[in-house]
Amino acid sequence: MSDSEIRRRPGGRAARVRKAVLDAAVESLVEGGTARFAIGDIARRAGVNETSVYRRWRTRENLLVDAMLAASDRHVPVPDTGSVREDLRAFAAVVADYLNDPLGSALARAAVVAVDDPEIAEARERFWHTRIDLAAVMIERGIARGEVRPGTDPRVALEALISPLHSRVLMTREPLGEELPRALADLVSDGLSPTRRPPAGTPAR
């Protein structure tokens, strides 16, 4: 069987190698953060050759983004309940659960800690932008259904929802109670309502 045929097989060797490498990358991030994130170490943990990792991801920055996205996709899915308020409630709750978990907390710290490597910094920025872009569909669906003011910036809305959660975990080290995610979701939903007039001089975007 050719390499291309292996790559096309769902659940084949390529899928197993990808999972092993991404699991090893997440393990590396949890243990040492981005500063110690190295393809050689990750290949060793995954039990694969470095050349296999480079062939698929090309750079450690690409691997960093893929590993963090894979972990967040697995643990922080984007809901589709048919209501923007319920979507935001569900999303905030799952983000809080993720940040309360040792894995989620460790990855969140790895995603914000200062580093001297500009390429790692750019990769982390790419990760955050990608996650926001994926979650923006909740706000876009709300606009289409008439639940959210037209012209609302999805990124601003989502940052208003999840930033307080990250702030408590990363800055004040406060626990995330069950009521906080729902309270934040309701606050953001009320602010986005087309029946609520935005403050004078506030740009939509």
Rank of each mutant, 00 (worst) to 15 (best):
P203Y: 12
V21S: 08
R18P: 13
L161K: 04
E140H: 08
A67M: 08
I120Q: 00
V78F: 04
V76F: 04
T51C: 13
A25E: 07
V48K: 09
L88Q: 05
E122G: 10
P198C: 10
V148M: 07
V65S: 10
P154W: 06
V113C: 01
R131D: 11
T130W: 09
A90W: 02
L63M: 14
R131I: 11
A24D: 09
L29N: 03
L134P: 01
V94H: 12
R182A: 11
I42K: 15
T34Y: 00
E178S: 13
S72D: 06
H75W: 15
A90D: 03
S105C: 00
R56Y: 15
E159G: 00
P154T: 04
T202P: 02
A111L: 03
A135M: 03
P118R: 10
L69N: 05
P164D: 11
D41N: 07
G142W: 01
R7D: 14
D80M: 03
P181M: 04
T34K: 03
R8Y: 06
M1Y: 14
R205F: 14
A15I: 00
L184T: 00
I6V: 14
E119F: 07
P154D: 12
A70T: 13
R196I: 04
R196T: 11
P79G: 02
V115H: 01
V156L: 14
R36K: 13
E179F: 13
G82H: 01
I139W: 00
R16F: 05
V17G: 09
F127K: 00
